[in-house]
């Protein structure tokens, strides 16, 4: 019997190594796997490269992981959100490396990694400082810049429902980066608000097929997110 559902956060985090590239879903707080990030803090892996749209808020979750000195580098599109205090302190002190990536390029780089595409060309960032040092080519009279696939060792994703085969659905705008991150990592761990029996999810409505998911853990996010 295939059963990807794990019962403890220790089991969910098992085997995450120092130096891993960790993809973290969410757009701000929505679709962000808060409990998995807390579990990663507990688990202890360090020297991490974290890929997330934002660079954490307050002093919890990703911000706490950074404050503990466990993140070597962050790859994101929008680090300067209100409340990203920890990141800004570390960045000014030269204690964290930043790779800034246009949001669509970031999503596409992970989609490409998941789809076996090593690199692609895009018009985004052409003629800007973010294209410096990158190969450019012209297609049909327009210039494009080459971007490389962005693969994760681990993806932490947040979903609404999951079953023991790893099939996932997401809740409204909580989908965001989660499906592309799920497909782009060697080890994808999903926290889900609801565990469903096999066959209970409508096949046509599965957002992330289980092939992209390795572990599923049930997390009760409380009444605010019910």
């Amino acid at each position: 019997m295939i059963n990807k559902i794990v019962q403890s956060m220790a089991d969910a985090m098992a085997g995450i190594k120092d130096g891993s590239t960790v993809l973290i879903g969410g757009f701000g707080a929505v679709g962000q796997p808060d409990q998995l990030i807390e579990a990663l803090i507990e688990q202890g892996a360090k020297d991490l490269v974290c890929v997330a749209n934002n660079a954490g808020n307050g002093r919890v979750g990703l911000a706490k992981l950074m404050e503990l000195g466990r993140v070597r580098k962050i790859i994101c599109s929008f680090p300067r959100s209100a409340g990203s205090v920890v990141f800004e302190e570390l960045y000014r002190a030269g204690k964290i490396e930043l790779e800034i990536v246009p949001q669509g390029t970031m999503a596409e780089r992970m989609r490409a990694a998941g789809a076996g595409v090593p690199a692609f060309f895009t018009a985004t960032s052409v003629g800007t400082i973010l294209a410096h040092g990158k190969e450019e080519r012209e297609f049909n009279g327009r210039r494009y810049v080459m971007e490389h696939a962005l693969k994760g060792d681990v993806a932490l994703v947040e979903a609404w429902e999951g079953d023991r085969w790893g099939n996932l659905t997401y809740r409204s705008s909580g989908r965001n980066f989660n499906p592309v991150m799920a497909m782009a990592a060697d080890l994808t761990i999903a926290q889900v608000s609801h565990i469903r029996e096999l066959g209970e999810l409508v096949p046509e409505n599965v957002h992330t097929p289980g092939i992209f998911v390795n572990r599923v853990i049930h997390v009760d996010r409380g009444p605010a997110w019910a």
């Binding site: 929008f78 300067r80 246009p102 985004t124 973010l130």
Partner: peptide, 21 residues
């Protein structure tokens, strides 16, 4: 998106994608 070449932590978000696309 950025106020200098050495902006402390510039934030681009989706602006370059929208501008180009």
């Amino acid at each position: 998106w950025a106020t200098s070449e050495n902006d402390t932590a510039p934030a681009v978000g989706g602006a370059m994608d929208l501008g180009a696309g």
